[in-house]
Amino acid sequence: MVNKIITAPILPRKRSFYTDLIRDKYLLLMVLPTVIIFLVYNYLPMIWNLIAFENYSIRKGIFGSAWIGLENFEKFFSSPYCGRVIRNTFVISFTDLLLGWPVPIAFALLLSEIKSMRVKRVVQTCSYLPHFISVVVVVGMMHIFFSSTSGVVNKLIVNMGGEAIPFFSTASCFLWLYVFSGIWQNFGWDSIIYFSAISAIDPQIYEAAIVDGAGRWQKMFKITLPSIAPTIFTLLILRIGWLMSVGFEKIILMYNEATYATADVISTYVYRVGLLNADFSYGTAIGLFNSLISLVLIFGANYLSRKLTDTSVF
């Protein structure tokens, strides 16, 4: 009798994908809006990239327009702007990376040396503030400070006997205005992650170091920095992956014809020829080229990350 109960097989109910769908009907209903939105506004545009290979006209539609193969790409590669926008994209994003990457690390290291919790909190709250401000306001404030006629900086320069510099219409100034305003806006916010990595370090390590006679700078460079190195490198690699997505929304607000030579990047060029001049096919072709480089960089960065730090995004 007892045996019988034990050996009686508990047959699993026959499961199929269909019964699973019925069981999860409410969950499916919950993700349905998300799936529809992503399908229409993220995946459908990917298909619309096909117009890069045709001479698209709104009247004829995507299927009625003439296919022209790679003509749009050839047009871009042989245009005088091609070299300029590719070079600017890389120069701006690399400078931004090289100068913008160490600042939040240094800030987090120094701030973690401050013992007073109140000072720490106030400084942190101040330094996060610019992150929440729109690019329009940031660029607007830059105009207020750096304008050639009424800017405060130029007023100072003139008062000290110098000559006013038209920062916004000087091609060589653009890069520095762009990079330093970016650092100003984001160093505090970017330091959050290093700051929490530092606070996760075991205090016993520091106590041991103090017994061994380590000073403040020794502790910083021999304990703190090596401990947060994985975080530092993971973030560096992530940023390399995002190199191609330079802040074109900010550049569009900052540049003008006088600074196109150093400020015009691939995505701003796409915006101008594609949307402002309504040359949809040509703009899409250049945008597609940009996305391809971007993909290569992301996968390359991810590969590097897996090889070097054993962490990867996917």
Partner: peptide
């Protein structure tokens, strides 16, 4: 399906057309 869109985008102009 969602995560892919963080790495691949349709681009400004195709998105504009779809909108």
């Amino acid at each position: 399906f969602v995560i892919i869109t963080m790495f691949v985008s349709g681009g400004i102009i195709p998105t504009y057309i779809v909108v």
